[in-house]
Simulated scan of single mutants.
Amino acid sequence: MDRRARIHAALGDPVRLRIVDSLQTSDASPTELAGMLNVPSNLFAHHVQALVSAGVVSRHHSEGDGRRTYLHLEQDALESLGTASPVAVPRRVLFVCTGNSARSHLAAALWRQNSAIPAVSAGTHPADRINPATVDAAARHDLDLPIVEPRQMDDVLDPDDLVITVCDRAHETPKVPGELHWSIPDPVDKGPEAFDAAYTQLEHRIKALASRFDS
C-alpha cells in the first residue's frame, strides 16, 4: 500500500504523466525527452528524480555514447495502477540492432510468437552471420529462430514499418523518424546468462507492446 501511494504521488503532476506516457513504448535520453516535451532541463531533472525515487523510472548509461543516459519505465511499478491505452496497429515491425546478429533476431522471433503482425530484423552494420550464442539462447527457450543472413536496415526498411531499435549504438546513428528505442544491453561475448537476460527483457517489452495494439 505504501509503495502504491508513493507511485500515485509521483504521478500526481502533468509533466510526470507526460514523461511516463512517452516512456510507455520507448526508452529515451533526458535530452531527447525534455526536448520532445518542451520542458526546461532543470525542471525536467526535478520531475525525473521524483519518478526515479518512486521506482517508476530507472536510468543507465548508454553502451554507445557513454556520456548519454537512458530513462526506462519500470512497467512492473505501474501494473496495479491501470492498463495503458491501445495504440495504432502498424503493418509491420522492424527490429534493429548494430550487427543484426543477436538482439534484433531474438526480438523479431519473439514478436512473431506473440503477435499476428509481421516482424523482421536488420542491422546498421550487419555481421557476417547470426551469433551462435543467439541460436543457443533461442533453443534454451524453445523459440523458433530462422537462421538467415544479417541484413542492412536500408535494404529492409519500409516507410510503413514501426521501427524499434534494441541497441543503443543503433539508436545513436542517424535515426528513422518515429522510431521506438529499447535500451537492451549487448549480450555478445558475455555468456549464456547475458543472452537469457536480454531474452527476458525483450519478451517482457514485446508482450507489453503487443497487448496495446487495437484488435
Rank of each mutant, 00 (worst) to 15 (best):
R129H: 03
S104E: 09
L94K: 04
P90L: 01
H61E: 14
D65R: 02
L73F: 05
Q152S: 08
A210H: 06
R140F: 08
V135H: 09
Q49H: 10
L162T: 08
H60C: 03
V56L: 03
D144T: 05
D168Q: 00
S80G: 13
R112C: 12
R3V: 15
R67A: 07
P126G: 09
P90V: 01
G191T: 10
K207A: 01
T31A: 13
D65I: 12
L43N: 15
P118A: 00
R212K: 06
D160L: 00
R4C: 03
D186K: 00
E149R: 07
K207W: 07
H8L: 11
D27F: 01
R91T: 14
I206T: 08
R103V: 13
T25V: 09
R205W: 06
H47E: 15
S58W: 03
A208Y: 03
T124H: 04
H47Y: 12
Y199N: 09
I147A: 04
V163T: 13
G55V: 14
S121D: 13
T25F: 07
T124S: 14
A10P: 14
G178R: 07
S62T: 01
D189V: 02
N114F: 11
D76Q: 07
K175V: 13
K190V: 08
T124D: 09
T25G: 12
S115V: 03
P30M: 05
P159T: 03
E63T: 04
E179V: 00
S104N: 10
L209H: 04
S104T: 05
V48E: 14
V96F: 10
R68A: 02
A122V: 08
P40N: 05
S211P: 06
I7L: 04
P86S: 02
H204D: 15
D158T: 05
A194G: 06
L145A: 00
R59H: 07
R129S: 14
A107T: 13
A137I: 12
G12D: 15
W182F: 10
H60R: 08
T83H: 05
N38H: 11
F44W: 10
A138H: 13
P30I: 02
N42I: 12
D186F: 00
